[in-house]
Simulated scan of single mutants.
Amino acid sequence: MANHKSSVKRIRQDKKKALHNKYYAKTMRNAVRKLRAMTNKDEAVALYPQIQKMLDKLAKTHIIHKNKAANLKSSLAQHVNKLG
């Protein structure tokens, strides 16, 4: 266990931040999964900008890597374009 007051506080903060990051990462994964499961192009086109915005925000706050966000946006755009 930590011996310093500051390290005890840092552990507390890290737990809180990890929980926060886990929530947003899981929300992002669910949204991506939802878009990939769509077969209606109109619905997918309407949902894509929201997911794109979410990915950009998560990359900006370093919850996910910027390249991962770029790769996801690219693959989702391809999926939306393939829908008929």
Rank of each mutant, 00 (worst) to 15 (best):
Q13W: 07
I64M: 05
R33T: 15
Y48V: 02
K57M: 09
H20D: 09
V32C: 03
Y48A: 05
A46K: 07
M54A: 11
T27Q: 09
H20S: 04
A69E: 02
K5V: 05
A69C: 02
D42H: 06
L58P: 01
M28I: 02
Y48G: 01
I64L: 09
M38L: 15
K15H: 01
D42G: 05
K41G: 08
S6R: 14
M38P: 07
E43Q: 10
Q13S: 11
K9S: 06
K53Q: 13
I51D: 10
R29S: 07
R12W: 13
L76E: 04
L19D: 04
H79Q: 10
Y23T: 05
A25C: 03
V80F: 05
A44H: 01
K57I: 04
E43L: 10
A59M: 02
M28P: 02
D14W: 08
K53V: 05
A37V: 00
K16H: 12
R12M: 13
K9M: 10
K9F: 07
I63G: 01
V45P: 00
T27V: 09
A69I: 01
K66S: 13
T39L: 14
Q78F: 12
N3V: 11
E43T: 08
I11E: 14
A31G: 05
V32H: 00
T27C: 00
K66C: 06
V45H: 00
M54G: 06
I63F: 02
H4Q: 11
L76S: 02
L72E: 06
H65G: 13
N81H: 15
K16E: 12
A46S: 09
L19M: 05
S7Y: 06
L76H: 02
S75Q: 15
A46C: 02
M38V: 14
H65D: 13
Q78I: 09
S74M: 11
H65K: 14
H4R: 10
N67G: 06
N40F: 07
Y48R: 03
L83R: 05
